[in-house]
Simulated assay, not measured.
Amino acid sequence: MKKRGVSGSILVGDIGGTRTRLSLYDGRGKRLLLEAVLPSREHATFEEIARSFLGSADHPPPKVAVLGVAGPIRNRAATVTNLPWKLDEVKLARSLSLGRVVLVNDLAVAARGCLHLPADVVVPLGEARPTSKGRSVAVIAAGTGLGEAHLVWDGSRHLVLPTEGGHVDFAARDALEVELFQFLSKRFPDHVSYERVLSGDGLGALYDFFVARGGRETKATERRLSEGDRNATIAELGLSGASRAAAKAVDLFASIYGAEAGNLALKQLALGGVFVVGNIARHIVLGRRKQFLDGFRKKGRFAALMAEIPIAVVTDPLVGVRGALAMAKDLIEAV
């Protein structure tokens, strides 16, 4: 029997602590009608962003919305980890006049999106790229926060499993990182997680750590850091070598990022590979791939196994939107 589908349009989104990406598709998810990237922190609520976006569209109102959210989903509701936003599926559907709203962890939609990527947005860090079937795959993304997800192969397809793995305890690997932990524990006495290191603010904390260890900066550098996006400036100064403290911060960031990606791969036994997504991956991981790979593979007795696991950087900023759209299509086909 032929499925009848859904009339109206489809709204998909990727809600992050820095940016919210929204896309509107036709009722079958085949044609893009409208898209926008909006600064999250300039809006008091998600509803404010969504109303503005939908109000600019001369198209049928969405009947289905799938939204990736940076935070855990519980009882069909979520609080965005790095924003004061609270989202509820039922309340959103009512206030925005949507037929159905589904909230999904943002790394879960990104993981699903990794299964639908064209080859030109996947940059392998070695000779192979992660597999699309047959083995489990891990997905990690450092950005405003640190997200992690699993793609578990069940024998016929990948099942997407969200996690809050970015909030596990940070584990020092050597004397320098013990010193770093002590530095961070003064800032975050309740808990030092990997997200406190592997995020935009984490890069800033690493820079502060190396400055505190004696990496004094010039007044010109201090002036640059006081203007605009401080963390982005640190990344730029570090990758270019214009600042010694920033360069050390970038190197250590890449090494710890690789180590935690390796931890994730080991815990899942992700022999199919690891996808590294997010804006930071496109810059720091590709710019410091040796440090990242060394951190990933340095696992003692399991170093040989780690060297066989393929890793790739995803350069597509719309990977979360791709995943949300795939999930929306699943809902429509199930009708």
Rank of each mutant, 00 (worst) to 15 (best):
R322C: 06
K186E: 15
V90C: 03
G29C: 11
D208Y: 07
R244T: 14
A70D: 06
V168P: 00
N75F: 14
E179F: 01
Y194G: 02
F209C: 09
A65S: 11
V80M: 08
V197I: 15
A175H: 06
K63L: 09
V319G: 00
F209P: 07
L54C: 10
A245K: 13
V314G: 02
G241Y: 05
V123P: 00
Y25Q: 03
K329G: 00
L11A: 11
S199G: 08
D58G: 14
S255H: 13
E179Y: 02
L24G: 05
G13N: 02
G238S: 05
E179H: 10
L318E: 10
R282L: 01
G99H: 10
A119Y: 05
M1F: 12
G113Y: 12
T221N: 06
G300E: 14
A142N: 03
M1C: 10
N82M: 13
G143V: 03
S199E: 09
A270V: 10
F302Q: 07
I10L: 15
R213M: 13
C114Y: 02
V90K: 15
A142I: 01
V90G: 01
H43T: 11
L24A: 10
G166R: 09
S156V: 13
V168H: 03
V12S: 06
T218Q: 04
I15W: 07
V276G: 02
E148W: 02
R31C: 05
A93H: 09
A141Q: 01
T45Q: 13
V319L: 01
L107P: 00
A334W: 04
S23E: 15
G99R: 12
A312E: 06
E236R: 15
D330M: 13
R19V: 06
A265T: 11
S95D: 09
V152Q: 12
K63M: 12
R100A: 10
A50T: 10
L161Q: 13
L38S: 01
A142D: 05
V335I: 14
R289H: 09
V66Q: 00
V139K: 04
L22E: 08
S132T: 15
L103E: 07
R129I: 06
T79Y: 10
V122W: 12
V314C: 05
T218R: 10
E47N: 11
E179R: 15
E177L: 04
L107F: 06
V37D: 04
E42R: 14
R129C: 08
P84M: 14
L269T: 14
L293T: 11
A245T: 09
S56T: 14
G241P: 02
A44W: 07
D201S: 13
D316C: 11
G262T: 10
K30P: 00
I280P: 00
K290A: 14
K186W: 05
M1V: 13
G166D: 08
A259V: 01
A242L: 07
L318V: 00
A44M: 11
L184P: 01
L22V: 10
P162D: 07
L206K: 03
T233P: 00
K86H: 15
K248A: 14
M1L: 13
D229V: 05
I311Q: 03
G16M: 10
V6M: 15
A246D: 01
L96E: 04
A281L: 01
R282Q: 14
S9M: 08
I10G: 01
V121K: 09
S9H: 07
R230N: 04
P61V: 12
L176A: 10
A220P: 00
L305A: 12
A128W: 07
A247L: 00
D14K: 05
I73S: 03
R223C: 02
E217G: 07
S193Y: 03
